[in-house]
Amino acid sequence: MSDEHNTLDAHDDVKDETVLFGITIPFPIYTVVFGALAVLTVIEVLIGTAEHGSLTIPVLFGIAVAKAVMVVLFYMHLRTDNRIFSIVLLIPLIMAIISIIFLLIVPPVAY
């Protein structure tokens, strides 16, 4: 790997090692994120295939959101990119969530 890359964009400064909670890990941040995604998926499958309790669905949903947020922030660079991109993603997302919640509230049988 050459180190003569320019620094036009903010996310160009990805290093070959990542410092996490004070510990230096010899992989770039992307690999660390992948590791976290894999671990979370395993946890998710373990919870999801076990007997469902009252907390199962919220916890599963929370883990899914965490995974999605990691992909969006790190792989899609929203953490460092222009804020307009976050706005462009968030507004339709809010719309989508509102509409899904409304569909869930309205009873399926017509009045």
Binding site: M1, S2, V14, T31, V33, F34, Y75
Partner: peptide, 15 residues
């Protein structure tokens, strides 16, 4: 996805 972003990292470094 991970492979994708590693590819991007490589081309950003000219590889």
């Amino acid at each position: 996805s991970w492979a994708m972003v590693m590819g991007l990292l490589n081309i950003q470094r000219g590889n």
